[in-house]
Design a protein around this nucleic acid. Structure first.
Lengths: 302, 302
DNA sequence: GGTCGCGGTCCGTTCACCGGAACAGGTTCA
DNA sequence: TGAACCTGTTCCGGTGAACGGACCGCGACC
């Protein structure tokens, strides 16, 4: 209903579908029904922010059922334990009666659960999410090696894969004294300022580096490398040494040692890292273990 | 591929919605449009399997968009790497054009991904699944304790919660020599024949025991306890000793030692277990570690 | 060249969806 | 006390999104 809500559906999208859309709707040279499109255009303008002119080719994502379900489910962040109906209405931008009806249907499916007047994401969604095949296979292959590293280092261990301009953490294990913040399973962090991200970036096609720079290098801490030149130099060194030591670029007081993981292909399938307080980080000592684990994973994936 | 595929759409459904539906549609005393309903009835009969007469009271789950999206997403099992459009049509029971359109929309959302002509579950679904709050909180609390147990025992460690008549594994870690079969994260196994399940069952209200028995005790191996009387006796002993040793009831050659995990409430929030080949299972030696871990988790949850 | 199954598209029909409006209950003001 | 807000929930009529049969082009297999 209000301005910020309308932006939400457009926000997370741009990464997903770059060029295929043009192919997909190639049969439709121009928007047919002007009446409908006009109405949407008005709403989009009212929203204030749109994809910048190019949206003329796109359909309004809100006038399909899935287009409404999406902002409802995505309204939940990792920190939201539960949301009221009113809050869902606010975040999704759909009409109250609509959200009410769809939420009910999602509850009978099990993707949402109700507790009193609040909605929360449901167990079934967790189950579905664990069925995603590639991630499951990777996790199962990587997990024992992560255990080894935890045993040796007693520090937090991450395994991350690459998606668009981020790393996505597929798994994370930590001992009692470990770090449980800044990162979580399925969480995202930028490629350019994380150990795992740099490891992947260093061994990816140069075009990815260009995209990352174009995406903007924002400083997270005062140590974040935001100069494209310095970042490029870092990546060159990483390729030479085959390992990264990222220090305090995302969180003051913490460092990460990371290596890429290969499975035959030229591009890495992911990256493995050890995160510890800087004063405890024994990069020289951990390097061999980390490299060995990465090789082991690669072998067991092939 | 073969005939049983036609049964699939009706197959996985019945579990979801037991009685609430009657409540939901209480305002609609009878099915209004006879024409449409007739058409569905014909198709259902042709399919050969239907919910057996009782379907008169429920709304046809297929004539809503979500009702069609659901069988499409649930068509994927953990073992399916990818499914063709035709296969999705077969399993979902919806028309080809419909599946095609919905799948396209799911792809732009990211819940599905395309590779050539095949669809697979998408990374976004994994991400959404990891946002489910209760499971995330539990996993984060439990994980370091599971590491401890792995370190001590070098055997497979499970943490499971209770849902309907099953246990659902929230997390599982295993060393290189560990067991990676029969169970997986977010997988389900019956309450009555697993260590974790028995541990939960023993400390749950008696009504759950009744439900489990009514649900039927099917033998998984020749050691599975399928006599309600013997099961009850087992549960009594578990309550006395506070720990379970399940031996070869789900997989020959393997045993599990399990304890319930409490967090203040009377009912357990889950159960923790160690699984090992029977010849290696040192129940007496592991019991203390397991009990200690469960207490630690309980404390850190409170 | 006939037949099958496949992915993909078109288009007229129609019914599921939409959302404003009104309702019931609760809390917070004056 | 009661007006003015919040919630969540239900109703209902108009309508456009969704549907699916029909069709196309392709490649595989007799």
């Amino acid at each position: 209903m209000k301005a910020p809500a309308d932006v939400a559906p457009a926000g997370p999208r741009p990464l997903g579908v770059p060029a295929q859309q043009g192919l997909m709707v190639s049969a439709h040279p121009a928007a047919p029904r002007s009446g409908t499109v006009r109405a949407k255009a008005v709403r989009a303008d009212a929203g204030g922010a749109e994809a910048g002119g190019a949206e003329a080719g796109g359909t309004d994502p809100m006038n399909s059922v899935l287009g409404k379900v999406r902002p409802i489910l995505e309204a939940f962040t990792s920190d939201d334990a539960a949301l009221s109906l009113a809050e869902l209405v606010r975040r999704s931008g759909a009409a109250k009666a609509t959200v009410h009806r769809l939420a009910q249907e999602l509850v009978t499916w099990g993707l949402l659960e109700r507790e009193g007047c609040d909605y929360r994401l449901g167990l079934r969604l967790f189950e579905l999410g664990q069925r995603v095949h590639r991630q499951r296979i990777l996790r199962e292959a990587v997990q024992p090696y992560m255990e080894d590293l935890l045993l040796i280092t007693r520090e937090t261990i991450h395994f991350a894969i690459h998606d668009s301009l981020d790393v996505v953490y597929l798994d994370k294990i930590f001992p009692h004294r470990g770090l449980n913040a800044e990162s979580r399973v399925a969480g995202r962090l930028p490629l350019y300022c994380t150990g795992t991200g740099k490891a992947i970036l260093a061994y990816s096609p140069p075009s990815l580096f260009v995209d990352v720079v174009r995406g903007g290098l924002k400083p997270i801490t005062r140590h974040t490398v935001i100069s494209p030149g310095r970042l490029r130099a870092q990546l060159d060194r990483i390729r030479e040494e085959g390992i990264v030591l990222e220090s305090e670029e995302i969180r003051l007081g913490y460092a990460s040692l990371a290596v890429p993981v290969f499975a035959g292909d030229t591009a890495p399938v992911g990256a493995l890292s050890i995160t510890a307080p800087t004063y405890r980080m024994d990069a020289a000592g951990y390097a061999t273990a980390l490299r060995t684990a990465a090789l082991g994973i690669g072998r067991s994936l092939a």
